[in-house]
Amino acid sequence: MAEPSQMTRNMLAMILLCVVLTAVAQLILKAGMSSASVQKQLQSGPSVQTVWTVLFNAQVFGGLVLYGLSTCLWLVVLARVDVSLAYPFVALGFVITALCGHFVYGEAMTASRIAATALICAGVALLASS
């Protein structure tokens, strides 16, 4: 088995791109699942029609496509970087998603969420400097 290399700037950029794509996918999925057509279908209970309505909602479908793209890029990262170094960067997705949830969807940013977000950022910064 080939030894993964050290993280280069290109690999760091690819990791961050994966994280951003995943966070954007979350936001798009939220928009799709909050749409009137999906919400109406979800209220009618589980059925094949519900599955089709959700899967063929343009935003849900787009979010899933972004997840797929991010996964393909992540496979390249895993082939070249130690997983123990690369994977903690995924935590930045929580930060991006929380901030976007606040600014895009008006979700609350409580003191505990802000503190947790700061801890995540500090942990990733510490890891990146190691």
Rank of each mutant, 00 (worst) to 15 (best):
M1H: 08
A2Y: 11
E3I: 14
E3L: 13
S5N: 06
T8M: 02
R9N: 10
R9P: 05
N10E: 09
M11C: 01
M11P: 00
L12K: 06
A13K: 06
I15L: 05
L21I: 05
T22P: 03
V24E: 07
V24Y: 05
A25Y: 04
L27R: 02
I28R: 00
K30R: 15
S34W: 07
S35H: 06
A36S: 07
A36E: 14
A36M: 10
S37R: 14
Q39H: 09
K40T: 15
K40A: 15
K40Y: 12
L42R: 10
Q43N: 12
G45T: 12
P46A: 12
Q49D: 14
W52I: 09
V54T: 04
V54D: 00
F56Y: 07
A58T: 01
A58H: 06
Q59M: 03
V60H: 00
G62T: 14
L64H: 05
L64C: 07
V65R: 00
L66T: 10
Y67V: 13
Y67P: 01
Y67F: 13
L69E: 04
C72S: 11
C72E: 01
L73G: 02
V77N: 08
R80Y: 03
D82Y: 03
D82C: 00
L85A: 14
A86G: 09
F89D: 02
F89C: 08
F89T: 00
F89K: 03
V90Y: 04
V90G: 03
G93R: 01
F94Y: 15
F94H: 15
T97I: 08
T97A: 03
C100H: 05
H102K: 05
F103S: 04
E107S: 06
E107H: 06
E107L: 04
R113P: 01
A118S: 11
A118C: 13
A118K: 12
I120M: 02
A122Y: 05
V124P: 12
A125S: 14
L126K: 12
L127T: 08
S130M: 11
S130W: 10
S130P: 09
